[in-house]
């Protein structure tokens, strides 16, 4: 089985890109399965089912979605192997723009859209910086110049990635993307021993544990203060 992890900011077009690309792979006779990780709610599983793709969904609820992802991906892979898939697609939204639930030696795709603004590539951390393939969507509604500037910025943030422009509505480019997603020589039988490409945010403070009251005396654990003293760009 091949495993591919796909992430990107909410509403960037991940599901549309996946559905169009999966369609082209299924036409070649490949068996495709999917898992959708989200935070509070998703209806995308219905869209997958409609497209004839077996799907599982996982909602992280009050947990950090990326921590939830990494604690569940191994079991999901087992589900995929049992289902006899040729390709298992894991889709998750990058909710805090910091994380990349990307795994070393597992193909990683980041989906971002032209409407998100040209400063966005810099704001997205490892999710964009460490992807193998960057898919840029919604190119049909912005000017050619904006598209070129946006993709130049993406390239400067992640020069090693393959950048593809996909139209999630017409599917233009999806067939081509599919040729990069599936490699018949790749055989994954477990995630045991594999590592994340980048650490996830470490935070354990009183609010992680359910505190709701505001004020210095309720703040415990890993707490950081905003710098209001001097002009600074540092976080």
């Amino acid at each position: 089985m091949n495993l591919i992890t796909i992430s990107g900011p909410p509403s960037s077009g991940k599901t549309s890109v996946i559905l169009k690309t999966a369609e082209s792979l299924m036409q070649k006779g490949l068996k495709v399965g999917a898992v959708k990780f989200d935070c509070l709610h998703t209806d995308d599983d219905i869209a997958y089912e409609k497209a004839g793709i077996p799907v599982k969904k996982g909602l992280s609820g009050q947990l950090c979605p990326d921590h939830y992802f990494v604690s569940n991906i191994e079991a999901v892979v087992e589900w995929g192997l049992a289902g006899g898939f040729d390709l298992l697609i894991s889709e998750s939204a990058g909710l805090c723009n910091r994380c990349s639930p990307y795994i070393k030696e597992v193909k990683a795709v980041c989906v971002i859209d032209n409407l998100s603004g040209i400063n966005t590539p810099k704001k997205i951390g490892p999710m964009l910086r460490m992807a193998d393939i960057v898919v840029i969507t919604k190119g049909d509604i912005v000017s050619q110049a904006e598209r070129e500037v946006f993709s130049a910025r993406v390239h400067a943030v992640n020069p090693t990635a393959i950048v593809m422009h996909i139209n999630g509505l017409t599917g233009q480019g999806a067939f081509e993307l599919g040729t990069l997603w599936y490699d018949e020589n790749q055989k994954l039988d477990s995630l045991k021993g594999k590592k994340l490409r980048f650490s996830m945010p470490s935070a354990l403070c009183s609010y992680c544990l359910g505190e709701t009251r505001i004020g210095e005396s309720y703040q415990m654990g890993n707490v950081r203060k905003i710098n209001l003293e001097e002009k600074s760009n540092e976080a």
């Binding site: 032209n114 409407l115 603004g117 040209i118 190119g139 049909d140 509604i141 912005v142 000017s143 050619q144 904006e146 598209r147 070129e148 993709s151 130049a152 993406v154 390239h155 990635a161 393959i162 950048v163 422009h165 081509e176």
Partner: peptide, 21 residues
């Protein structure tokens, strides 16, 4: 030509396009 992100073969102009900046 397929993968060089700095150089794409086709530029597009359509009626749906807008400036967003």
């Amino acid at each position: 030509w397929r993968f060089a992100s700095g150089k794409k073969l086709v530029a597009q102009l359509s009626q749906n396009m807008n400036f967003v900046m």
